[in-house]
Write a protein that binds this DNA or RNA. Structure first.
Lengths: 360, 360
DNA sequence: CTGAAAGCGCTTACAG
DNA sequence: CTGAAAGCGCTTACAG
């Protein structure tokens, strides 16, 4: 009945020490002196005996106990809107990898982008005494971040940025620009944006990069051609439905998220049109399904896994007292079939859309 | 410079006690006496003063320290093949919810179904002193599980079952049967299975339920009409390509996973055929995209989120010493367009496939 | 080079 | 009803 924590009887420092007839503190010192056998912590001979026995007994130090003394848990809290969003799941895989490599473990929690949940999950993480937080669901204009800063909780943002706080993000303005340039080259003049949630920098920046580029080309994008939406399939479908009511209809749609783009593709099909032929669509992120769609999706690839890894590195640098600044990773455009041969057919399309609208 | 763990200066039991002029042990006793104000732990008056101050100071007990004494961390380890698999991500959301409600926190790690990684991640979890494990990536014939049992590590399986160990799964044999009955009713006689990985009970059971039902109807499914595959889009596509080489070609395909089914749909289109019209396809799980596909996918819905919740509950019952037995949740069939009007066209299809093959 | 002590924040019998 | 002590497993100055 002595088993308590999983794994039953666990070997402790004291066990090791008494088996070798030396003091626990000596064992501790040796085990902390890095791989160079002793480094002044003990004689090479004792050090070797200790290491040997530790290995043999499968000793693994109790992080609870160590943390109690050192005040460092080697734990990171990660907050995301939802792990069932593939984009965040991939970023988390990057976090998981990097954290493991660097000796950290992570808690992940879903906030569903609800401010109350964000606060609650943050509290849970802090109650667990994490060393710091990776925040993947930051809203612009954020009281929680101010508060965390005041409380000196080390954190970095990932995925979404907020001015004034260190973050690991994609250069989303550039991403929007790439999408715009691509569509400009294809000759599109009436374009629309499915812009995501208004509280997320991702959507805002991608939209800004896109509309600024069109404006600079002398083709400003009208306000009612920019529609906010959730970042999922349903959101994209709904937004596209709205765009179908605009006149003239857009000949190209930039959705700031691949899943929203997929929803838009569905709406386009429902209207009897063919993406890539009748109307161009560009998504964002290049999730794995994008290339596998019936009509493969042109998209802006963002380095999702890398962002996760980077967030871990930045946070660790904050632990070490460094004053880290934000990093934006570069996206690239992946042209595929949904922007194949659309622009030339502009007139044709508009008349076909007019027909559709009169049927309504 | 006194800040160390995130959150800086933290209120301790001792702080509370000295502010009230009582002993820390009294404070501890009160805070542990549940919501009934004192329950013999102290006078109602002191109890109220203590609770009041604890609230005011935002006291939250240090779980490291508590765990060190009690040998219970209230931590669970969760191992999944990959969180970027939506099916597992949803299950994890169920785990996350239930664990939070019941006062537990969880670590999740990806094993990528690699036995070495499974072992490594398990070790990391145990080194973190989790109270137990939820294993979502179990392989049939599993040395690791035997070892964990020998070491008295409490664990439950989720998603995939292994005979002899407690698990929270979907009744996959039933699921396979539902798919088969549906296709039988539509009149299909030449059917095939994209069966998933051979080490996963999910694929095995779904395939067994399916083939047994067809066999019982006097229509045994030939061995070369059952093809193993990975559980993703690529795996499904490859398996379908192989099935196109069979003669007679199947008029219906059961894929044990929706993503594999989506891959099969791609292959079908590549062959110039239309799913739901020329060939029936049934998937498994009913992930959110299934209903949103150009041709919505008929599938067997599994209670993914519920499985996660259930796994948490079972594990906690194991902590309490209960001898828990496995639970299988029931799936239901969701008929959609990919099995709309296929069976009648059998002959027609077969001749069309023959034509295709001769072109190769 | 090694030992001994103190202490991290908590809990839990044991007294009284 | 409350206090005081011991101890969970570790780390870290401090001696010597």
């Amino acid at each position: 009945m002595e088993e308590s924590t999983a794994g039953g009887r666990t070997v402790t420092l004291k066990d090791l020490a008494s088996e070798l007839g030396i003091h626990p503190s000596t064992v501790s010192r040796i085990l902390h002196s890095g791989s160079d056998v002793a480094r002044g912590a003990a004689s090479v001979a004792t050090a070797e005996r200790v290491r040997e026995l530790a290995r043999k007994r499968g000793y693994s130090p109790d992080p609870q106990a160590a943390g109690l003394r050192t005040r460092r848990t080697h734990l990171m809290g990660v907050i995301v809107p939802r792990l069932s969003d593939l984009v965040l799941a991939i970023m988390y895989e990057g976090i998981d990898e990097a954290a493991a490599e660097l000796g950290y473990s992570t808690f992940v929690m879903n906030s569903r982008d609800d401010p109350e949940e964000q606060r609650r999950k943050t509290d849970t993480m802090l109650a667990r005494r994490v060393d710091g937080l990776i925040i993947g669901d930051a809203h612009l204009d954020n009281g929680l971040l101010r508060e965390l800063t005041a409380r000196k909780v080390p954190f970095v943002l990932m995925n979404r940025r907020v001015p004034g706080y260190p973050s690991a993000t994609c250069d989303d303005v550039l991403g929007g620009r790439l999408a715009a340039q691509h569509l400009l080259e294809l000759g599109h003049t009436t374009v629309a944006v499915i812009a995501g949630e208004p509280y997320a920098s991702t959507g805002i920046d991608r939209t800004a990069g896109f509309t600024e580029t069109f404006a600079a080309a002398g083709l400003p994008v009208g306000g009612d051609y920019v529609i906010h939406s959730s970042f999922d399939v349903t959101g994209g479908r709904r937004a596209a439905e709205q765009l179908f009511r605009r006149s003239p209809a857009p000949t190209a749609i930039f959705a700031v998220n691949d899943f929203a783009a997929i929803g838009a593709l569905g709406a386009i099909r429902d209207h009897g049109l063919t993406p890539g032929t009748d109307i161009a669509v560009v998504g964002y992120n290049d999730v794995s399904v994008a290339a596998e769609l019936p009509i493969p999706l042109t998209t802006v690839r963002s380095p999702m896994r890398e962002m996760g890894r980077l967030a871990v590195e930045l946070l660790i640098r904050r632990f070490e007292g460094d004053d880290v600044s934000s990093v934006r990773l570069s996206p690239i455009l992946i042209p595929r079939a949904t922007t194949d041969s659309t622009a030339k057919r502009t007139e044709q399309l508009n008349s076909s859309l007019d027909r559709q609208q009169s049927l309504r």
